[in-house]
Structures are given as structure tokens and as C-alpha cells.
Design a protein around this nucleic acid. Structure first.
Length: 941
DNA sequence: ACCGCCGGGTGCC
DNA sequence: ACCGCCGGGTGCC
């Protein structure tokens, strides 16, 4: 199993923390299992293109036949020998409703499929019985007609239907037999698109992972190891690997080479995959994917790039500040008012208090979530940071000097809201203070709609939500009018869903150079990668058909050649270093060692007694569900029981407020409401990996329906809107009402619950073990700082008591803190002052991507996480760039308990996560089986 | 299109 | 000749 790709899943996890803050979402645990649904039902809500895509993933070759393309002289599209062509239905054709257009790789029409054949194909294509693909064997000199080799791909169960249908029209498919068939395609239609005769042996996921591992294992290529000094205005000295990144990025931006798989032949540029040729030189991708692992300094690398490579390798011309006077003039002089923590309204949006100057609210007021739904723009929300404004619009007005360059100099940076302020900080930190850089934060209701304002900037910062929102009304979106010098997508894996508006909004930006920053370039599936290639405008892969035919299908079918192509492609445009990767054999970053210990805990007799009795009760209930076959319909209840057991492993008091709700029956609306709230809280906080079955992504803005199914609010609202007046639950078809949706109460503090109990405080075996370790550690070295991590914030509260009693100074970081308090807590903890806290109580999922707790070199993980990636992410908060000490992690696991079983499941998940790339999602029945197995394993049935 | 097909002109040897 | 044959017009769907 590869460590590197473990990181991948961790990163995905991180990303969930950032947006949803609620659920894990491992790709191999699609949502269907929980909701007891068939994926087909879900797909029907999705765009047709998405489902077509799914179908193609499992397509087999039905056979091939020869056909004819006619009417060539009427169209401009030309085709080479052995060039791939696309077939497209044209039902609106006035002469023949069966018409089938033939287009070349460029999308130019070449001709039509001959009438009689089109008559046979129309139905097959319209009802998606098969995808029909063409290759023209001799295309070059045909004037009126040309032959085309058609291959039919589809689901196995449609094979006979297609064959019979064709037969009715007098056509017959040749099976892809040796000799003519496969040879023909293989040898003549570009490099190997061969379809094995036997059922495809899928390359195992592990194999694929290993193959990809090798790509970045040890970077030896010249262009990735050469170093470059940044422009003089970059105030921070770059580390060697950062100079390498800069050199590589600059070389990519200034590349005059042809893109991969293109050759110059005679006077034409020739694509060796599709055999397409054209006169115009295909643009290379002036950019790529910066896939460095977190902590290696992607932000700094990007800032260095912006300042260092303006045109022809020359640095960005910037204004030097003569004295601070000119700067002062530009300042926002009005003193910003403080904005108190907003109240949380029904939608979970945090509103700032009324009457506060719109312009000068602090980051504290900003939305915690960056979702399409947050309607941030309609709200009187925020300027993200006052200093942003300082540098932003107001400054730019007085920086009269416009660089004579006709081209725009502006770089657009798109990032999640949670890292927006980080970008501003980093610019401030890394750009010499003597330099004036125009940075405009395009965010908030007062953002300029003048594209001229934006194009004048050096840097424009915005968020994915704003980008997507603007895209919806493109005509009014300056973002989409400016021809950017450069667009940088930070946390670029957020555009991994090619059907999402967010992705489309990003792809639609016009830019000379395009970059994706992400810690997880290769996340789960090839399709994720395709989104990135779309954004990079990688010819010809931005078109799904060519991507599919040249890369995705060959790879998923186990074609070695296809895999090599994919590898070459990824390697060509990606720079990725991990904490452990090496450059010419030398570690890119020396990190101190990290050791994980498991401390087994034996429950006291009293604790064991309670545990066993609850366990027996739970086993009985779950056993009954098993017998009834209703485990999955009672999934939330099962989770509740399991959570209770896990809590009992930590502290008996914890389990008291997780009552088993049972089946909602004749309860009052208030009770039902409460039960639903409890259910959604449970599902989201249990650490199981739930996803929204509509967007198939991690839950953003989770809501629960009356029928107890959880979706993203935007997703389910769209369903309700489109199915009005009688919308049905996508999962169980029960009636849906907008007003019945129950939301996940954000950031609820659980301290009140525990405070009541604090009078009757009792220790537990686990707490005692922790306290023992902590006091021992303090004796040994009182300066060492520790993280105490739990998924149960109430447990953290319980731990507070003995910490106080033993005189430990500690801070606490969990989801209930405001942004401001959060920052305070982190700064306080990171401080090296002698009286600074040595302990941080940390809720497992608190904080976003960048949470840096390197002051700690000890981690006490109080309870095992459902998802091992969550633990890894948590460990990485202190085991990262800047950590000077050895990191020692202690995991407390109660013997003979659900916790031990969770550890076993974790191990299995690690294996799965390592192999997630290139595998399809499990079918819903496989999923159910997996989930049932998991529950069985957890409760020992 | 150096084809096929259409339809008009034409018609012993 | 209700044929054959000739040669011009013509041509995706």
C-alpha cells in the first residue's frame, strides 16, 4: 500500500472538513448504502450526460461494422487516414429525422452517415443502447464519401438488443475477432485502442496506484529539479524545493513546445492519439497542476510565480513605494467597527448584526462555509479582511500608474472562502513591504462589476461561490469578461465533478495561463482528473469523447498503452512532491520521525458492567434488525447504538444524552422534529462516511427529510423546486415539503450538557490513563505540548476537569468557536511563551486545511475515528513543515470493545483507500453488503 | 462521381 | 418501343 496515496484520501478528507465540516466521504463508500436506494434512481435526477458517463464506464464492445460517410463536399471538416470521428444524432434534420452527423476531432462536421445506416443507428443512439464510435480508415483524399469503421459499446445486457435491431435493418456486427477486427483498430486507428476479446480483466486498483506512485517517487527530470531564484520583490527566501517549483512553473508558462501527443508533420500539427491534424499550432498548456503535498508551500510558490514571471520570464513590474506616505493616502482611514459573532438563522447563515458599517466588517463575520448555497452575495456580508480592502479597490484607484503593457497583468486566484484570508496574509508576508502590489478581493456585495477595474489589478482574489454565482449571470460577471493573464484555482480538486456548476464556471474563465493547486491531483477516479484537464484546456482531452476513447476506457480496460499515455500526461503537467518524496534520492523535506503507539485500556469493573449491559441490549436490537432485514433502514438507530458504545469506552457520562430514539411513530411534531435533529446530528457526527445521494459528494449544508434521509440542502431544494408541486424523496419516494426539511444545527456547543454533570464528575479508565501519561510527560519535560483529540466534544469537556485539577494550562479548539476565538486559541497554543498552554483539547474535525499546530509534538487520540484518514489528517496538523521534534502519537483503545473492532475496520479501509483510484463506485448492493458486514464486525454478530 | 441513378431522346442494316 | 441503348444532368441528410 502506498503511503503517498494514503495522503490522497486524507486530503479528500480534509476538503470535506473544510466545506461540509460534517461528513467523511470516502469515494468507495458511496451514499446509497445508507439510504437503501438504487443508484439508478439517483442518477435520474442528475444530468443525462452524467448518467451516460456512468454507463460508459462499464461498457463492453458489441462489435464493429463498416459504414459510409456521405456528403463530404458540403462540409468543411476534414479527416485523416485512421482518424477518430464522433457520431452525433441530428433529429432536427429537415430531410431525415434519423440523420447522424459525423464530426472530426475538432468538432467540425465532416458529413453524414448514409441514410440507410442512419435509420438503423438512430434508435440505438437515441435510447443509449450503445455508444457508436467511428474511425475513418482512409479519410484523406475522399471527396464525396468515405468509409467509416463503427464500433458499438454498451452494457452487456443491451448487446443482443443492439444486434437484433441492426439485423432488422440488414446490418451485422463483426465480433472483434483477431485478425481483421482488433488488428484493424489497433494498428491503424492510432496507437492501440484495442478491445480484448475476452471480458476485460480490470487492472486492480492497487496496480494502478502503484503505477502512479512511481510517477513522483523520485523526481529526476531536469525541469523539475532545476532551481530558480524568485524576483527580487519576493521577501521570503525560498527553500530548494520551492525554487524548483518556481523554475518548473515558469518553464511551463513560457513553454513553446507542442503539447504532449502532438507532432509536426510537414506543415501540419498532428495528434498521435486521434490522428487528427490541423494547420494551427495547438497551444501547449501554459500552466498545469501544482500538486505538492500540504505544508510544502504551494501558496508561496504561486506568489513567487506571479511576481517572477510576467512576460518572457521577466518579473511583474511593480510600483515601489517611495515612502509610506503615499500608501497612507490610500488607506482606509475609517476605523473598522467590531462585528460580534452573528446569530445563526434558520438557514445556518450567520448574519452580522445590523447597523454595522457594511464596508468594514472583519473576517469574524464571514461565512464559515463556502457553498453554492450560502447566498453570500445577496447578504450584507463581509469584506473579508480590512487589510484586504486597504490593498484592494481603494488603493488601486490611487495607483495611477498603469503599466504600458496591453495585455492584462492580472492573475485571478479562486479559492475556498476559508483560505481567502490566508492568501492575503501570505501576500503580505512574502512580498517585500517596499513594493506596492494591487490586490483586489472580489467578494461581498460591493464588489466591482467593472471588468476594467479587475483587469488593472495585479491579483484578484475570489471564492468558488462567487465565481459560480457570477457564472450564473455571466453577462454581468466581470470575472468572465476579463482576459486574465493567469487563473489559479486553489484547492483545485474542488472542481472534480465535471457536471458541477462550479467546474463549468471555472472552465469558462478566459486566461492565458491556467494553474491548479491541489494536494490531491489524483484523487479517486479518472473522471476527477478529467475535470482538471478540462480546466487546463488540454487538447483534445477537454472533450469527453476523446478523453474517454484515448485514455479513460483503455486504462479502465487494463490497456497498458493507455495507462502509459495517462502517466505521461499526468507527469507532463504535474509537479507533485510529498513530505516523503525525494529529489535525486534526497528527501525534499526532512521531517522528524512520527511514531504511533496504541495504548490498550482495560475498563474498570463498573465500566465493563455498564458496557456489557448496553452492548447486550444493542446487540439484541441490531440482531432483530438483521433478522427483519431492516438494518439499513434503521441505519441511524444502529449508528446511535454504536456511538453509545463508543462513548461508553470513553466515559460513562457521555452516553447519557444519546438516547435510542427507536422508530418514529405516533410522536408529536415537536418530538418528531427533535428526533430528526438528533438523527442528523448523529449521522453527521458519528464519523461514518455519508455523502449526498444527489450530488454524490460530501454533504454541504446537510438537511434531513421527514423520511429521515440526509441531503445537501441545495441539492434537495433543487429537486423540490423542479418536481413541484408534489416532490418526492429521491430515495424513498415519500412526500417532500420544503418546510419540512430539518437542518443540522451549526456549531452548537455541548458544554451546557456537560456542565450540569460537572458537579458529579467521575474519572474513567481512559481519562485516568490520559492523565497518567500527561503527568509523566510533564515530569519528564514540562515544555512539551500535546494535542488531546476526541470526536466527542463532550468528552473534551469532561477531560477539562482533571486537567484543571492537575494544574495544566490548556486551550480548546472545536467547531463551536468563532473564527476569531479560533485564531486566538491557535495563536495562544502555538506561542512559545513559558506560561503558554501546553495542551490543546481538539475536536477531531475542527479547523480547515491549513490548521497548523506544530507547537505540539504529542498527540493523544482518545477514541478511534471511523475513518482512518481523519486520524491521519489530525496527526498531520503537528507533523508538518515547521515541526522540529519527534512526534509521538498515542491512541487509546479499549480492549474487548467496539473500539478494537473499529481499528480492524480502519485497517481494511486503509487498504481500500489506497486502491480507490481507477475503481468504480461499488454497486448499491455491494455497498449494502459492505455496510452490513461492517456493522456485524463492529458489534460482534 | 473514372461511379449509379434518373429521365429524355431515340430506334434496321 | 409497354423495350434497349445512348448520353446529359446530376449527386448527403
Amino acid at each position: 500500500m502506498s503511503w503517498m496515496f494514503m495522503r490522497g484520501s486524507i486530503w479528500k478528507y480534509l476538503q470535506c472538513g473544510q466545506y461540509g465540516r460534517t461528513g467523511d466521504s470516502l469515494h468507495h463508500f458511496p451514499p446509497a448504502f445508507f439510504f437503501n436506494s438504487e443508484p439508478e434512481e439517483v442518477l435520474s435526477i442528475d444530468e443525462p450526460s452524467a448518467s451516460a458517463d456512468e454507463e460508459m464506464d462499464s461498457a463492453i464492445l458489441f462489435g464493429v461494422m463498416r459504414g459510409n460517410v456521405v456528403g463530404l463536399s458540403y462540409y468543411t471538416g476534414v479527416v485523416n487516414n485512421n482518424e477518430m470521428v464522433a457520431l452525433q444524432r441530428e433529429p432536427s434534420n429537415p430531410y431525415d429525422k434519423n440523420a447522424v452527423k459525423v464530426n472530426n476531432v475538432n468538432g467540425d462536421q465532416v458529413g453524414h452517415i448514409k441514410r440507410e445506416l442512419a435509420a438503423a443507428l438512430a434508435h440505438i443512439m437515441d435510447s443509449r443502447l450503445a455508444k457508436v464510435e467511428g474511425v475513418v480508415p482512409f479519410g484523406a483524399k475522399n471527396v464525396f464519401t468515405m468509409p467509416v469503421q463503427l464500433s458499438f459499446w454498451g452494457k452487456d445486457e443491451n448487446r443482443q438488443v443492439v444486434l437484433n435491431h441492426l439485423k432488422q435493418y440488414g446490418f451485422k456486427l463483426d465480433p472483434m475477432a483477431k485478425g481483421f477486427g482488433s488488428n484493424w483498430i489497433t494498428k491503424r486507428a492510432g496507437p492501440s485502442y484495442s478491445a480484448p476479446v475476452l471480458p476485460a480483466v480490470q487492472m486492480s486498483a492497487e496496480q494502478l496506484m502503484t503505477e502512479f506512485d512511481k510517477l513522483f517517487e523520485d523526481l529526476k527530470e531536469d525541469d523539475k529539479t532545476r532551481e530558480m531564484e524568485p524576483a527580487e520583490v519576493v521577501g521570503t527566501p525560498l527553500l530548494p524545493h520551492q525554487k524548483q517549483a518556481l523554475a518548473w512553473m515558469v518553464s511551463r508558462e513560457n513553454s513553446k513546445e507542442l503539447p504532449l501527443f502532438w507532432e509536426q508533420r510537414n506543415n501540419l500539427y498532428y495528434n498521435t492519439l486521434t490522428n487528427f491534424a490541423e494547420k494551427e499550432k495547438p497551444e501547449n498548456v501554459l500552466g498545469g497542476i501544482l500538486g505538492d503535498d500540504m505544508g510544502l508551500g504551494k501558496t508561496l510558490e504561486a506568489i513567487a510565480l506571479i511576481l517572477t514571471n510576467f512576460h518572457d520570464g521577466k518579473p511583474l513590474p511593480v510600483e515601489k513605494r517611495e515612502n509610506d506616505q503615499s500608501y497612507q493616502k490610500c488607506n482606509v482611514t475609517e476605523k473598522p467597527e467590531k462585528c460580534e459573532k452573528g446569530n445563526t438563522n434558520k438557514l445556518g447563515k450567520r448574519k452580522c448584526e445590523k447597523g454595522i458599517s457594511k464596508l468594514h466588517k472583519e473576517a469574524t463575520c464571514s461565512f464559515q462555509k463556502d457553498t453554492d448555497f450560502d447566498l453570500a452575495l445577496a447578504e450584507p456580508a463581509t469584506k473579508v479582511k480590512r487589510k484586504a480592502m486597504k490593498k484592494g479597490a481603494i488603493v488601486s484607484q490611487c495607483s495611477a500608474k498603469v503599466v504600458s503593457e496591453k495585455k492584462t497583468r492580472a492573475t485571478l486566484i479562486v479559492c475556498p472562502l476559508s483560505v481567502l484570508s490566508n492568501w492575503i496574509d501570505q501576500f503580505e508576508q512574502h512580498v517585500k513591504p517596499t513594493v506596492h502590489l494591487n490586490i483586489y478581493v472580489y467578494y461581498g456585495p460591493d464588489r466591482s462589476k467593472e471588468s476594467a477595474v479587475l483587469s488593472k489589478q495585479d491579483v484578484v482574489l475570489t471564492t468558488y461561490s462567487v465565481l459560480t454565482h457570477d457564472y450564473a449571470c455571466r453577462s454581468n460577471s466581470p470575472l468572465h469578461k476579463v482576459k486574465w493573464l493567469r487563473v489559479v484555482l486553489d484547492e483545485g480538486h474542488t472542481i472534480r465533478n465535471p457536471n458541477a456548476q462550479q467546474t463549468k464556471a471555472a472552465v469558462d474563465l478566459e486566461a492565458e495561463r491556467r494553474w491548479i493547486l491541489t494536494g490531491t491531483p489524483i484523487q479517486n477516479s479518472l473522471k476527477d482528473l478529467w475535470s482538471l484537464f478540462c480546466f487546463l484546456k488540454l487538447k483534445p482531452f477537454a472533450d469527453r469523447e476523446w478523453w474517454h476513447r484515448t485514455i479513460q476506457r483503455p486504462v479502465t480496460m487494463g490497456d497498458q498503452e493507455g495507462l502509459r499515455r495517462l502517466q505521461a500526461l499526468v507527469k507532463n503537467i504535474t509537479l507533485r512532491r510529498t513530505k516523503t518524496s525525494k529529489v535525486n534520492g534526497k528527501a525534499v523535506l526532512e521531517l522528524p520521525e512520527r511514531k504511533v503507539f496504541v495504548q490498550h485500556i482495560t475498563l474498570s469493573e463498573d465500566e465493563r458492567q455498564i458496557y456489557e449491559s448496553v452492548k447486550n441490549e444493542s446487540s439484541a436490537v441490531i440482531g432483530r434488525y438483521f433478522n427483519e432485514g431492516t438494518v439499513l433502514t434503521h441505519y441511524a438507530d444502529v449508528l446511535a447504538l454504536l456511538v453509545r458504545l463508543r462513548q461508553l469506552c470513553c466515559h460513562p457520562h457521555l452516553a447519557k444524552n444519546t438516547s435510542f430514539s427507536g422508530i418514529p411513530g405516533d410522536s408529536t411534531p415537536e418530538e418528531l422534529q427533535e428526533k430528526l435533529v438528533n438523527k442528523i446530528k448523529l449521522v453527521l457526527s458519528s464519523g461514518s462516511d455519508e455523502e449526498c445521494t444527489i450530488c454524490l459528494d460530501s454533504l454541504t449544508f446537510p438537511v434531513i427529510t421527514q423520511c429521515a434521509h440526509v441531503f445537501c440542502k441545495p441539492c434537495i431544494c433543487q429537486v423540490i423546486r423542479s418536481e413541484q408541486p408534489d416532490a418526492k424523496c429521491p430515495l424513498c419516494r415519500s412526500e417532500l415539503r420544503l418546510e419540512h426539511l430539518v437542518e443540522f444545527p451549526l456549531e452548537e456547543s455541548e458544554t451546557s450538557v456537560v456542565e450540569k454533570k460537572s458537579k458529579e464528575w467521575l474519572p474513567s479508565s481512559k481519562v485516568s490513563a490520559l492523565m497518567h501519561s500527561l503527568t509523566e510527560l510533564r515530569k519528564k519535560n514540562p515544555m512539551i505540548k500535546s494535542l488531546i483529540v476526541s470526536q466527542f466534544t463532550a468528552f473534551l469537556s469532561i477531560i477539562e476537569t482533571p486537567l484543571r485539577e492537575s494544574g495544566f494550562v490548556f486551550v480548546r479548539l472545536d467547531g463551536s468557536l468563532t473564527q476569531k476565538k479560533r485564531i486566538e486559541a491557535i495563536q495562544c497554543f502555538q506561542s512559545s511563551a513559558p506560561e503558554s498552554p501546553t495542551i490543546m483539547l481538539l475536536s477531531l474535525k475542527a479547523g480547515g486545511v491549513g490548521l497548523n499546530l506544530t507547537a505540539a509534538s504529542r498527540v493523544f487520540l482518545m477514541d478511534p475515528a471511523w475513518n482512518p484518514a481523519a486520524e491521519e489528517q489530525c496527526f498531520d496538523r503537528c507533523h508538518r513543515l515547521g515541526q522540529k521534534k519527534e512526534v509521538i502519537i498515542t491512541k487509546f483503545i479499549v480492549k474487548n470493545s467496539v473500539e478494537e473492532n473499529m481499528v480492524k475496520i480502519q485497517d481494511k479501509k486503509r487498504e481500500l483507500a489506497a486502491g480507490a483510484f481507477g475503481t468504480k463506485k461499488m454497486s448499491s448492493s455491494e455497498m449494502k453488503q459492505a455496510k452490513i458486514k461492517e456493522i456485524k464486525a463492529l458489534i460482534d454478530i
